[in-house]
Amino acid sequence: MSKDILRLAAILLVVCGIAAACVGTAHDQTAPLIEARRADAVRAGYKQVLPSAGQLTDEQAAGKRIVAVKRSESAGQTNGYIYTVDPDGYSGKVVIMLGIEHPSARISGVKILQQHETPGLGAKCTEPAFIDQFLGKDLSQELIVSKNAVKPQEIQAITASTITSKAVVKGINAARRHYQEHFGISLTAAGKGV
């Protein structure tokens, strides 16, 4: 009886070792491909949130919730900025990419890069019905979450998911503040105020 148990344990140990080696090899083989696809998705996201994006350079990403800032230049002129922000949602970080046209200070696009929100509720933050509300918004004033958005600076909350809605708006407002502090000379120059 004890010999059978030892024999079965040895077989199980060999099978587990082979399986672990296969998983490790598969991970090593696929990790560069996964990273390359992730980088391609980010580059595609740049064009999605700022269609006029030209040559991109990194800017200092200082501030709470600001992960990265890229400056876009076309024909020797700055034509926009791309922000990546990561506010806290209901179930973790919501990673958002946002394009801001320069010097008009209007939102040219928003893309949710990563979220772990509740399916059917907060996960709706990736849907056009929610995302498209941000397009063309003037960033001279903070955006506000509302149940019935009627004013230009209001964003209609996702039904039964106010926390996620507020998280996305909070992240975009963080990018707005950073933009105004570092690049938004045009806001005051145009007489819009801050």
Rank of each mutant, 00 (worst) to 15 (best):
A68H: 15
V67W: 07
L50A: 08
T78W: 05
L50K: 01
G76V: 09
M97G: 09
A44K: 03
R71C: 11
L56D: 03
V69L: 10
G76D: 12
Q48W: 07
R38W: 12
S91D: 09
V94A: 05
V49W: 04
R43C: 01
T30K: 06
L50T: 03
A53G: 01
K64M: 04
G89R: 04
L33M: 01
V67C: 04
R38E: 15
G89H: 09
G92D: 08
Q77G: 01
Y46R: 08
Y81G: 09
A36P: 02
Y46P: 01
I34Q: 11
E35N: 13
G45A: 10
Y83R: 06
L33S: 02
A44G: 03
G45V: 05
Q48D: 07
V42K: 03
A44W: 00
Q55W: 06
E73N: 09
D40R: 08
L33A: 03
K64T: 11
G80Y: 03
S72W: 10
A61P: 15
Q60V: 14
T57H: 10
Y90T: 05
L56E: 02
K47Q: 06
I66P: 15
Y90D: 10
G54M: 02
A41D: 10
Y83C: 07
V42D: 01
Y46T: 06
I66D: 12
A41I: 00
Q55P: 01
A68K: 15
G54R: 00
E73Q: 13
V85T: 14
I82P: 03
T57W: 07
I96C: 00
P51F: 03
Y83W: 06
P32F: 08
V49C: 05
K93T: 14
S72D: 08
P51E: 04
S74L: 09
L56V: 04
V69S: 14
Y46D: 07
V42A: 00
A31V: 11
V94G: 09
A31E: 15
G54I: 02
Y81L: 13
Q77H: 10
I82H: 04
V85Y: 08
R43W: 02
L50D: 02
A61I: 14
V67S: 09
E73V: 12
V42N: 00
N79P: 14
K64Q: 11
K70W: 13
V69Q: 11
M97H: 14
T78K: 00
T78N: 06
V67N: 12
N79T: 04
V85P: 15
G92V: 01
V69R: 10
D40Q: 12
S74N: 06
R71W: 07
R65W: 02
L56K: 01
E73P: 13
T30F: 05
R38N: 15
A31H: 10
K64Y: 04
Y46C: 06
